[in-house]
Design a protein around this nucleic acid. Structure first.
Lengths: 187, 187
DNA sequence: ACCATTATTTATCATTTGTAAAATTTTATT
DNA sequence: AATAAAATTTTACAAATGATAAATAATGGT
């Protein structure tokens, strides 16, 4: 997926503004299982996914909790680092080999102070992520684990083929055993 | 709480930009139990809470699910309306008599297109809300209902005195009976 | 202060989900 | 194809939460 397209699906930018961003972006590649970001650090870059799929997870005692999947066209950003300059609580792990567009957070912050349209792009980005997150939070309360699983299947049909069920279970907020039970009841 | 202070705690604005917003804001008052926003409508205003406390809730079949409380200094906005011009899924109900600063969403959108600092204010607002929402989503997975209750007590000590436990239970994602059990085990 | 209403707690039982361990299936490697 | 490793499912049991109804406490209006 091309960077122009990725940027525009957040908020269409005038040519000039778009080029300011593109000029500061580099392409990088990492292999499967690479740890792109680690919890506890302030992360200096953000990434747009050209191809591949990743997960964000947080440590809980001895286990890991996956709370986000990102694939083609999505943006990888440690919100705490990006917003507040604080260390993030999330690890980002590549679940496939990925091609990423890399951008220094500092440079983007600079652009936010220079360019009205880029500031509005940043606003739209956060707003859209917010709606998605809010909807997930509410869906936790509204829907049973089985419903959430079915919805995930419907919304992201390819996901099951690309991601281990253990991560899916964690993402849905249930144990893998519970997810197995749900899957067996459906068929 | 003064509007200037409310705006500044999101993102400090230069005097000129701040006045552009303040000039478009009016003060309104509503009584307890007033329904400020209704699900299924596109909401044309946003509000800053000068005093009082409100809840956002969504309908689930025969019951209501409270997913947010807002009090002094917080911003009331139907995210779907504000971001996407779509009807929201939330009702906003006043739990106390409130004094609110009212702003037309359309006028704010206009300011986003005119003023770089206001666009960045809007960006910061969404980013901060996003972090809060993301943390709540993760806390759902990390923590037991009892832990979440204790945290809510610690973070918002006054809340229990201002809000019925039925709403608190719903906010925590448990039934009122469950919350009662938790409360009795603590003491 | 009294009554009616609403809010909260308690009790009982059913359901769901979690934990731990073993069994099975799938995948990767030689 | 055979083996080892990893992923997934199954089983048995424990713990947490839900549903319903009844009991108690708190609140608001007259």
């Amino acid at each position: 997926m091309q960077l122009t397209q990725i940027l525009d699906q957040v908020y269409p930018l005038p040519q000039e503004a778009r080029e300011k961003i593109i000029g500061r972006v580099g392409e990088v590649r990492f292999g499967k299982n690479h740890l792109l970001m680690r919890a506890g650090r302030v992360e200096g870059n953000l990434y747009f996914i050209k191809s591949g799929i990743v997960r964000a997870y947080a440590d809980k005692e001895d286990q890991e909790i996956t709370f986000w999947f990102g694939s083609e066209g999505e943006t990888i950003v440690s919100m705490n680092s990006y917003v507040a300059g604080r260390p993030g609580y999330e690890h980002i792990e590549l679940l496939e080999p990925c091609v990423l567009y890399e951008l220094r957070a500092e440079e983007l912050q600079q652009l936010f102070q220079e360019d009205l349209q880029i500031a509005n792009w940043g606003r739209k980005f956060a707003e859209k992520e917010l709606i998605k997150t809010e909807e997930r939070l509410i869906s936790r309360q509204f829907k049973t684990a089985a419903q959430r699983y079915k919805e995930l299947l419907a919304d992201s049909p390819g996901l099951l083929q690309r991601v281990p069920l253990s991560h899916i279970a964690s993402y849905l907020g249930i144990t893998q055993v519970s997810l197995s039970r749900i899957r067996s009841e459906i068929r």
